[in-house]
């Protein structure tokens, strides 16, 4: 399914309605006498902040119906932003309450109520910790696997203490159905976590793969071929990605997202091309043939229009080429003649992934290939430096601007330049598809 603005608008509206629902339920009759505006406002922020925290489990639940229209990478980016919003809502709840009425300081006073003060102080600490470990994970040298454990535990702790806090204060939930509402919301969040961590891995357990081939590519990248064991494998659309578990049980937290690099027409095996960038990817080259693997997916809306009349312009940097290779190989296998333009920025000729194959594809596909080299060899006549507006202006003439989809994938700095550039050139939002490496 392709990304649709209309569907995105529906999901966002539903999100706002569900996030605001707890406060609406709280205000339904019977209600106690109102306090000052600032106290009511702060309490409302707390309700909504906790609801946003609960919905974080939906965003990371990898539900294919929602992810198909929005793209799982977009949902995870929204999850990051929403987490920060929830943080400020809950912080606002605490500070505004205490400024509006200093008597509320008693909630954090161990002399007034030790368990309550400990729990609420711990939840505030957990909020700071979850934000800090997420935003600055790599600066702390925290591995992805440990971060996932810490993140899940802290998130559950915050939601659990939040619920206990609401039930214990009890101001707006005096009647049973209001208490039931909060319990159902919390059980729902817990179920979503169980779905992600237990039910999905169980499904994967029944569909194992084995590594059938490992190829060394240029620039410290490796291509892993995976063949299904005892099942028919996976069907995906070129440009999509999956979560890969290598040599571990599917219940392991050592699971990483990678784009498929093979043709979607290849039913025998699927391939991922992985560059040695992080703690896990540096070990990929040492994988043995026959290693057991599991795939969860496919996900992502970074996919070309099925109509071959729609052309594609790819603006790519470095290892961002992998999902594009899947598209080009698929177009080749389908003998498609759609208009294609690849603007590919790399460090040098020696480190350019798939260079020989792209040159071959230039002959079989209707492909215009613009290679931008940061460190070109002597006598290089092509584009040099980093992908820039000047280079894009030179190669994206009016002919290429119309009737095409634009796929942007590469380093953050390149994408931060290219995305607004395409909008300035008048490309409608729905024709610009971008995928960032850092989705986790």
């Amino acid at each position: 399914m392709k990304f649709s603005l209309k569907q995105a608008a529906v999901w966002i509206t539903l999100y706002v309605i569900f996030a605001a629902a707890p406060i609406v339920v709280a205000y339904l009759s019977p209600v106690p006498n109102a306090r000052s505006f600032w106290v009511e406002f702060a309490v409302g922020l707390g309700f909504v902040g906790l609801a946003i925290m609960g919905f974080q489990f939906v965003l990371t639940g990898r539900f294919k119906n929602i992810a198909a229209s929005l793209g799982l990478d977009s949902m995870l980016q929204f999850h990051r932003q929403a987490g920060q919003i929830a943080f400020f809502f809950i912080l606002g709840h605490v500070f505004i309450l205490m400024l509006a009425n200093p008597n509320y300081l008693a909630f954090l006073d161990p002399h007034a109520n030790l368990p309550r003060a400990l729990a609420l102080s711990a939840v505030l600490g957990a909020l700071v910790l979850i934000l800090v470990t997420t935003v600055w994970r790599q600066s702390f040298g925290l591995s992805y696997e440990w971060w996932r454990v810490i993140h899940g535990v802290l998130a559950l702790f915050i939601v659990f203490i939040g619920l206990v806090h609401i039930l214990q204060v009890g101001f707006y939930i005096s009647v049973w159905w209001k208490q039931a509402f909060w319990l159902i919301m919390t059980v729902g969040a817990l179920f979503l976590l169980i779905n992600t961590r237990i039910i999905n891995p169980l499904r994967m357990y029944r569909r194992p793969y084995r590594i059938s081939q490992i190829r060394e590519e240029r620039d410290e990248a490796w291509t892993l071929s995976l063949e299904p064991v005892g099942h028919h494998g996976i069907r995906f659309t070129p440009g999509q990605f999956a979560w890969l578990t290598l040599d571990k049980s599917p219940f392991s937290l050592r699971q990483h997202p990678f784009s498929f690099s093979s043709s979607a027409e290849n039913n025998e095996c699927v391939e991922f091309t992985i560059k040695a960038l992080g703690d896990f990817t540096k070990t990929v080259g040492a994988t043995k043939i026959g290693t057991r693997a599991y795939i969860e997916g496919p996900y992502g809306a970074f996919t070309p229009d099925p109509d071959p009349a729609v052309g594609c312009v790819f603006i790519v940097g470095g290892v961002g080429i992998t999902p594009i290779m899947s598209m080009l190989r698929t177009f080749r296998d389908r003998s498609e003649s759609r208009n294609l333009c690849l603007i590919y920025g790399t460090l040098s000729l020696e480190t350019t992934l798939f260079l020989d194959e792209i040159r071959d594809l230039e002959r079989t596909l209707n492909l215009k290939f613009v290679h931008v080299l940061e460190n070109p060899p002597v006598g290089w006549n092509g584009e040099r430096g980093l992908i820039s507006k000047d280079i894009l202006n030179r190669h994206l003439s009016e002919h290429y601007i119309r009737d095409n989809e634009y796929f942007v994938c590469g380093p953050e700095t390149m994408m931060d330049m290219v995305e607004p550039y395409l909008r300035c050139r008048g490309i409608p939002l729905k024709y610009i598809l971008s995928e960032r490496f850092k989705i986790v």
Binding site: Y15, I23, A34, V48, S74, F78, Q81, A82, A301, S434
Partner: peptide, 30 residues
């Protein structure tokens, strides 16, 4: 979906929710 728009959408949703909370609190007190 473009990253810049996701950030803007999230900030927009945040502001919208603050306004909703403020309006509901005001209606409660009024």
């Amino acid at each position: 979906m473009l990253h810049i728009y996701i950030r803007r959408i999230a900030i927009g949703v945040g502001f919208l929710l603050v306004i909703i909370v403020a309006l509901l609190a005001w209606s409660r007190v009024a």
